[in-house]
Design a protein around this nucleic acid. Structure first.
Length: 850
RNA sequence: GCCCGGAUGGCGGAACAGGUAGACGCAAGGGACUUAAAAUCCCUCGGCUCUUCGUAGCUGUACGAGUUCGAUUCUCGUUCCGGGCACCA
């Protein structure tokens, strides 16, 4: 009794000392987890001491972890909270593993919202953007994220985009950039080009007026030059989700087939078609051209069909715009009055213009084989054109009775010298024949198109080109870069605002000195995000694009983390840029991101969190109420990262409760930290202490494996919760202080990457002088983690009937015997014949009876 | 239409490699403490069955088959949900 009193008094005295010079408040008799004081204290320290500032150090292994940088829309949202919490765990964990960790942050700062805000409120896009950045930077700092803030970049800053302009000019020199005239989606009322996804039901997403096709000039990046490599290198991306690799593969869309010329009857013109089904070439019964096909003009000029065909084309192009993009119009077409000749059999076939043929794919001309292509089939039925099956499945096709095209393989029939060949062989034979005869050759077509980067907008990086009447498009000389966006006044008008700023565009030709005009288009904002990860390695370099040594040391990004919505565009463009920068001599790598984690969306009440749905939860409010550590913990605990996360306010509460529990547990166990660290001797431990010691090491193993294997922090956290639960249970009894201390310190170690402020505070409180983040991640002792008693499950015919507790050393035979004499088991096997007994080591015994 | 995922208690989610289904958390119910409440702590918690309330029996991982001593896990088929592409010749 007296002893207990003494302990109580000592504890009380200790507590008193803690209270006097620490960040806790005391309410009544309980210590309260004062997250506000704790978080601001450590954030302040990190701000002044910059422990996350790094530089290249060839002596140390590097680790580059990157989260997709945000668009500075105004405030961070839960998707960011989740993304950056995940990244921060990786960064902090790898640091404790001894890596030199690069973990930067910045802003994808160009884009239309800034311009819209400018039009609406009269603030300059730069002002709007920079003030959003300031606010959001504060939010990220309040989350305790371990970024090297000295590397922060904003893509709208001239010191960033000047190097992008430099790269643009070098690509121009290498002819990887070109200018061409194409059809774009044009909104008359907004007087601007719209991206495909901004056209809704043929109308402008903003003003709802009719979108029309318009031919105009634009700048293109020749990503198709890299199509083959972009496709082949997908095989190197073992650290990417398969889903994303598949999406990219489909997007690139390589098709191998035959390009073949059909001579136009009574004309010198030829129509080149592309087909992936050369085996069906004897089934061609007509030819279809895209309405935009350049040959049409000469085919119909002066004929009696001319007016009708022109009318059809006009109507079709209009219809194309009017139709919702996800709708397929009914197939229709018109006969041009002309014929062409199938070079394989000399047959003359009618040439049609058809609304379903795309000019952008293949050659814009399609040999129509109604028997083996569903689109051609429908078209043929509608216009009474012949259907001729030439690839026969086992059940022979008869043209008259066919209800749909047969698109699978078969054996060739009515195909001249190829008859009797199976499809696969016939494809090769047909191509070989065409090549030999000189009217066709093997050909590869890509679904991937060149990347149009021109935008008629203000808030983007200016394209560094000057148009001169006599010299044409002239690159801005390197020493004149950057071409800076003009003015501090808001841009007016939504169309090509730069086009209206004479002070900007009016200049002299660098070549001939004559008055000339600057290009007034700006670059697609995907340009900036295609190389920012590389710029982070030398963000302040002011005399070049990249520092070679830094790039070589840090790249590739070891772990990239972001939303799956960027699976195609951003990730494909970045891969392309990496290869292009490599070929310009800036980079030594082929692929930018070794490992990719695509995190799921944040869901509330079954729907994606969004302003329009009104189900957003503001991170600010949550951090205010519970602290950053709790919010981070919940974001990591509620679901594995790649899956959607259902936001549950009560779950957040639960995480806060957990941290409070640990907080109290540590305060009530401060005794165990007062002595030095004693060596733990397995042989002298009481069974309960042995058990806690074991659980401690098992938990280290479990958490380490979850982080290393798949970033499943949710199970890692469960593991720590189990350990905490066991510690709480143990502390009710006398416990060896060394074991208790080890267990509690382990909790802090394992939790640190997720809840850093909290753990640092507890670490300091328990008498450690050096910050926790400078410690080494704990390793587990396999001997300590090992169970010395095992629970063996006994089944009879696969059904659970009993459990045996045996020492780990028990042999198979003995376990078998123990199982057979188990009281419960006997009641099930009595009077039956034991057919066999299956023993799974350390796991179970299954007695099979009849 | 094609290509990928996914489906486990009231909810979010666990289950190494085919071997105890439901870890951990939330919610709910009961209890302790309190004048009371909050906070905290303890217990129960998939469904059904039982004059034995158990260390009980049956059943159960979307549905239907199959392989196996044994299937949430593997195979085939079906349904539903989500995502990507979508007239790609």
């Amino acid at each position: 009794m007296l002893h207990r009193l003494a302990i109580f008094l000592i504890q009380a005295a200790q507590r008193q000392t803690i209270m006097e010079n620490s960040t806790y408040t005391q309410t009544q008799d309980a210590l309260k987890y004062n997250f506000k004081a704790i978080e601001s204290k450590w954030q302040q320290q990190w701000l002044t001491e910059k422990p996350y500032k790094v530089s290249a150090d060839p002596q140390r292994p590097k680790y580059y972890v990157l989260e997709m940088f945000p668009y500075p829309s105004g405030r961070i949202h839960m998707g960011h909270v989740r993304n950056y919490s995940i990244g921060d765990v990786v960064a902090r964990y790898k640091r404790m593993r001894g890596f030199n960790v690069l973990h930067p942050m910045g802003w994808d700062a160009f884009g239309l919202p800034a311009e819209n805000a400018a039009l609406k409120h009269g603030v300059h896009p730069a002002q709007w953007t920079y003030s959003n950045i300031d606010y959001m930077r504060g939010q990220l700092k309040a989350m305790g994220l371990s970024y090297d803030w000295d590397r922060e970049i904003a893509t709208c800053h001239p010191e960033y985009y000047r190097w992008e302009q430099r790269v643009f000019l070098q690509l121009l020199e290498k002819e990887l950039v070109y200018r061409k005239k194409t059809t774009v989606n044009w909104c008359e009322s907004c007087a601007t080009v719209l991206a495909r996804e901004q056209v809704i039901d043929g109308c402008c997403w903003r003003c709802d007026s009719q979108v029309v096709p318009k031919n105009m000039y634009g700048w293109f990046l020749k990503i198709t030059d890299y199509a083959e490599e972009l496709l082949a290198d997908l095989d190197k991306l073992g650290g990417w989700p398969e889903k994303v690799v598949t999406m990219q593969r489909n997007w690139i869309g390589k098709s191998q087939g035959l390009a073949c010329d059909f001579q136009v009857e009574n004309s010198a013109e030829k129509i080149t078609i592309f087909t992936t089904r050369p085996d069906t070439i004897f089934g061609v019964t007509f030819m279809s051209l895209a309405p935009e096909h350049p040959l049409i003009d000469s085919l119909i000029a002066g004929t009696e069909q001319e007016a009708a065909v022109r009318g059809f084309i006009e109507q079709t192009l209009l219809e194309k715009q009017r139709m919702a993009l996800d709708q397929e119009p009914e197939k229709h077409g018109i006969f041009t009055g002309k014929h062409c000749v199938n070079p394989f059999n000399g047959e003359r076939v009618p040439i049609y213009v058809a609304n379903f043929v795309l000019m952008e794919y293949g050659t814009g001309a399609v040999m129509a084989v109604p028997a083996h292509d569903q689109r051609d089939f429908e078209f043929a039925r509608k216009y009474g054109l012949p259907i001729r099956p030439v690839v026969q499945p086992e059940q022979r096709l008869v043209a008259e009775s066919m209800e749909a095209a047969w698109e699978s393989d078969g054996v060739l029939a009515d195909s001249g010298m190829f008859s009797g060949l199976p499809s696969a062989e016939a494809k090769k034979a047909v191509i070989a024949h065409a090549e030999q005869q000189g009217f066709g050759k093997t050909h590869i077509t890509w679904r991937l198109r060149d990347w149009g980067i021109s935008r008629q907008r203000y808030w983007g990086a200016p394209i560094p080109v000057i148009h001169c009447e006599s010299c044409g498009a002239v690159p801005v000389p390197a020493e004149q870069l950057p071409v800076v966006l003009p003015g501090t006044t808001p841009p007016y008008g939504s169309h090509a605002p730069l086009h209206q700023q004479e002070a900007f565009y009016s200049t002299a030709c660098p070549k001939c000195g004559q008055p000339a005009k600057r290009e007034t288009d700006t670059m697609d904002t995907f340009m900036e995000s295609s190389w920012y990860f590389a710029r982070y390695t030398s963000p302040r370099k002011d005399d070049g694009v990249l520092d070679q040594d830094a790039a070589k040391y840090w790249l590739a990004v070891d772990q990239y983390i972001g939303g799956v919505e960027h699976a195609i565009l951003h990730l494909l463009y970045s891969r392309f840029f990496t290869k292009a920068l490599r070929d310009l001599g800036y980079l030594h790598i082929d692929e930018p991101f070794t490992n990719l984690l695509t995190q799921g969306m944040v869901i509330k009440d079954g729907a994606k969190m969004s302003k329009s749905k009104g189900n957003v939860v503001d991170p600010d409010d949550l951090i205010q109420q519970y602290g950053a550590d709790t919010v981070r913990l919940f974001a990591l605990f509620a679901a594995p990262p790649e899956r959607d996360l259902e936001w549950n306010p009560q779950g957040v509460e639960g995480c806060f409760r957990f941290l409070s529990r640990v907080f109290r547990l540590i305060h009530s166990s401060l005794d165990c930290f007062s002595g030095g660290t004693a060596q733990i001797d397995l042989s002298t431990l009481s069974p309960a202490d042995r058990q806690l010691h074991r659980k401690t090491h098992q938990t280290i193993r479990r958490v380490t494996e979850s982080i290393e294997k798949d970033f499943h922090f949710n199970t890692a956290i469960s593991g720590v919760m189990e350990l905490v639960n066991q510690i709480s249970a143990e502390t009710a009894q006398p416990t060896a202080s060394s074991v208790l201390r080890e267990a509690l310190e382990t909790v802090l170690f394992l939790l640190f990457p997720m809840v850093p402020h909290f753990c640092e505070e507890m670490w300091q409180l328990t008498g450690h002088a050096q910050p926790l983040q400078l410690q080494t991640w704990p390793s587990f002792d396999p001997a300590a983690a090992e169970e010395d008693e095992l629970t063996i499950v006994v089944q009879v015919n696969g059904k659970l009937r009993g459990r045996l507790t045996v020492s780990a050393a028990t042999g198979e035979e003995e376990i078998k015997q123990l199982a057979l004499v188990d009281e419960k088991v006997i009641s099930f096997i009595a009077g039956k014949t034991v057919q066999k007994i299956i023993v799974v080591k350390d796991k179970l015994v299954n007695i099979v009876i009849k």
